[in-house]
Amino acid sequence: MHSKGMTAATADRQAEMAALVRAHQAGVWRYLRFLGCDPTEADDLVQETFLAVLRKGFEVRSPAETAAYLRTVARNRLLMARRQQSNHPPVVDLEAAEAVWARVAGEDGLSDYLAALGDCLQKAVGPRARQALELQYRDRASRAEIAAELRLAVEGVKTLLRRARSALRDCVERRLGR
């Protein structure tokens, strides 16, 4: 192999890698958060994941395969990190979490899911439930605060939010056909 050819190949490789990182870093980060990482740990493990992939060499294939591969690498990185700090076991059952992610979130790192959710928030839940969700997630209000705002019992807020999330899940899944 001539050195010139190798340089070109390396440049292509770099471009490929950059594209891979840009396309998937957000998805991998979300996935790691889903697996129980806090934001800082997720930042670090995203980096670890791509570095591991780069060390191994990676051929970009279909989006689904690529995403699945990255998730496995990310999971392994998480496991290794957690082993090093042995007092800090994974928060969720990784296999089950992966199964749910692969089924529901799919290959695009949750983008379609989030888009569908935006739509479902308008269509699948009533105004009161939407208000409760906004109070909880946007304003970070506690259940008691939400209860006061909506003039409900705390228990009622719990039920309202649970039902709303469940309706949203149904709606999103239907929209995604998953």
Binding site: R30, V100, L114, L121, L133, Y137, R138, R165, R169, V172
Partner: peptide
Amino acid sequence: ELEDRLMDQALREVLGG
């Protein structure tokens, strides 16, 4: 539970930024 967790995360992103 995991699906609910995923929804929770998605809501934190969509509504909570």
